[in-house]
Amino acid sequence: MLKEFGREIWIADGPLVAVAGFHYPTRMAVIKLSDGSLFVWSPIKLTDGLRAAVDILGDVQHIVAPNSLHHLFLPQWKQAYPTAKLYAPPGLRKKRADIAFDVDLGDAPLPDWTGQIDQVLMRGNLITTEVVFSHIDSGTVLFTDLLQQLPPKSFSGWRAIVAKLDLMTGPEPSVPRKFRVAFSNRGAAREALGRILAWPAEKVLMAHGTPVEKDAPAFLRRAFGWLIG
């Protein structure tokens, strides 16, 4: 259920989620902080088995939605862990007024994880403002939707054509074409990307795609070459 991905970080894959007729695989990460508490990133559907595995690791105190598109399972996790704080990225409070968020995410890491997890807002996109994280101990950069790679066999007919044109089914994860076009402020995006490229990345994790576990800096420069150039 939970797979160790590096020092003090674990991942779990969840069920497919349907969006506009497309079925996306889901993935979450759990990071153990120095005080023993758990930071849950992009939570997937909570099953009894997953909850048992998470509880073995520690006490869930931080439930993090990394962008305004990843919110489906937040109420489920908050119900299971009522003392945990819910963290909202830009735009999600308004979109999910039914959820009582505790803290808004910004460009700076919060005191509970300063020195352990860094973060930056990838601004300038009309679809969503994604919070990109860097887990220092494992050298993992965590993207959500800005990088994707879906199995080509996941689609058929016109959906397969759309997925290919959107750059979602390439040989390695990339920024989908719809997100590239949606960057209305590329200057803001480049500024955020500069911070990301300065992180000592060893791995890249994403919610929808194959994790990159070697040559992470080179991969990131390829994936965002269209923005750098």
Rank of each mutant, 00 (worst) to 15 (best):
R7I: 12
D13P: 00
L16R: 12
V17Q: 07
A20I: 11
R27D: 00
I31K: 11
S34W: 06
G36M: 09
S37R: 13
L38S: 07
L38E: 01
V40Y: 05
P43V: 02
T47Q: 00
T47S: 14
G49W: 02
G49E: 13
G49H: 05
V54P: 00
D55G: 01
H62P: 02
N67C: 10
H70D: 04
H70P: 09
P75L: 02
A80N: 05
A80W: 01
Y81N: 04
Y81P: 04
P82W: 07
A88Y: 01
P89A: 05
G91R: 09
G91Q: 10
R93Y: 11
K94C: 02
R96N: 02
A97Q: 13
I99A: 04
V103L: 06
G106F: 04
L110R: 11
L110V: 12
D112T: 08
D112A: 15
D112Q: 15
Q116G: 09
I117T: 04
V120R: 08
G124E: 06
N125I: 09
N125W: 07
I127T: 08
T129S: 06
T129D: 03
T129C: 05
T129V: 13
V132W: 02
V132L: 03
D137P: 14
F143D: 05
L147S: 03
P151H: 06
P152V: 08
P152Y: 09
S156C: 01
R159K: 15
R159E: 05
A160Y: 00
K164R: 15
K164A: 14
L165C: 12
M168I: 08
T169D: 09
G170R: 12
S174V: 04
R177C: 04
F179W: 12
F179E: 02
V181Y: 11
R186E: 13
A189Q: 07
E191I: 11
A192I: 05
W199C: 07
G209T: 07
T210E: 14
P211Q: 14
K214I: 02
R222D: 12
A223F: 07
I228L: 15
I228H: 05
G229C: 08
